[in-house]
Design a protein around this nucleic acid. Structure first.
Lengths: 206, 206
DNA sequence: GCACCGATGTGACTTTAGTCACATTATATT
DNA sequence: AATATAATGTGACTAAAGTCACATCGGTGC
């Protein structure tokens, strides 16, 4: 868990830590990265690190978080695109098409370092990757779904919006995890995500 | 990942490692446990460890796996109990009641050390806990669901049994994760598990 | 027998994570 | 301003993880 002490830090110190972490996590696989090196780079004493974070995964998560923030921000400011249209509408328009656009958008939104960071997340040890992805889903993606559920007239009004937004936010993570376990290709898992989403969505519409 | 070299090892060596690991993981919180100590206890050189496992979480997972095997085995040999009746039928009989029985069964099935180990898993760092639980779900629980889906006449025959069994196997993990994030009580998440299961199940029945 | 080769064993060694007692700085109180 | 109290800074230190060059074993072919 990221401690409050980190957020209370003067901006330049935060920046220094995040910049050094960004570079480290973008340049090496998760296992090869080193807190020691990040701290040396950012000129932060060892002891301080553990007042800000529990461990390396916290800092990694923060970096990935910033990448996803860019994606979400982009998504919010181009409501016209399929990606901007909301995932529930995307579902109706055809999941495959949506994913295609999503992938190419990714490269437009993210700079080289962010993109490398993103890929290193995908190749991090399963436990770390899963942890990060679940966190991102529930903290960044679920809120978007919640709004969409609330404004969707087909959705029943008596449901627990937070919970179903949470479940829907896992539309990418779960099929990806399943695919990784069973050695499926990415293309195959896209359809599975559609199936999952449909299950959840059907259960809350009249 | 657990390497094949471990499984090829002579039984007594495997036993020694597992026994020492069992004791360590049952006696201390995950973060306090030490590979060094386990290896000293089991009389295994350091270098060997990394020929068998990637890291501590592998060994931890193996221990938890053995605990769940006992639970599953117990479940399989007492088809009369609600727990043995299959989770799909349990759903119809009432999820709450089922969970109650499940909890008390746990203490009957597991000895003190296993029970302590199980609790330490629940209190391990989120990334580790989640990783272990997802693995257990997809490797031990999903196969049980798969059989139940195949023999359930209400379930459509054209579905991907493996995938839906996987999704159903997460009936406990996902609500628990959601509950932990939103500070819900265990009782509250039980109902949420029911909701989730219903969503998935409805989508594959005619 | 011996020469070969892949798999496994081994523990000293390097690097990393994580701790802790004490120092310093900020904030509140009188 | 002086004092008390809480929050943060600090880096040497301990214990842990993880590596690696070399040793040993077990089988296969000749």
């Amino acid at each position: 868990m990221v401690h409050q002490t980190f957020y209370r830090l003067p901006d330049d110190k935060k920046e220094r830590i995040l910049a050094a972490a960004h570079r480290e996590f973008a340049g090496l696989t998760y296992e090869k990265t080193s807190i020691n090196r990040i701290l040396a780079e950012a000129n932060i004493p060892k002891g301080s690190f553990y007042q800000y974070f529990d461990d390396k995964s916290d800092l990694f998560y923060l970096c990935i978080y910033s990448v996803y923030e860019k994606i979400i921000a982009f998504r919010a400011c181009c409501k016209e695109s399929l990606l901007g249209a909301g995932l529930l509408r995307m579902m109706k328009l055809g999941y495959d098409k949506g994913y295609e656009i999503f992938s190419s958008d990714m490269q437009k939104i993210l700079d080289e370092e962010d993109f490398a960071l993103f890929n290193n997340m995908l190749q991090a040890p399963a436990a770390i990757r899963n942890y990060v992805q679940m966190n991102i889903a529930s903290e960044l993606i679920a809120p978007v779904f919640k709004e969409e559920l609330k404004s969707d007239p087909a959705v029943r009004k008596d449901i627990d919006y937070d919970y179903y937004a949470y479940l829907l936010s896992l539309t990418e993570v779960l099929p990806a995890d399943y695919g990784a376990r069973t050695g499926r290709t990415l293309d195959e898992t896209i359809y599975l995500g559609f199936e999952y989403m449909k299950s959840i969505y059907n259960n809350i519409t009249r």
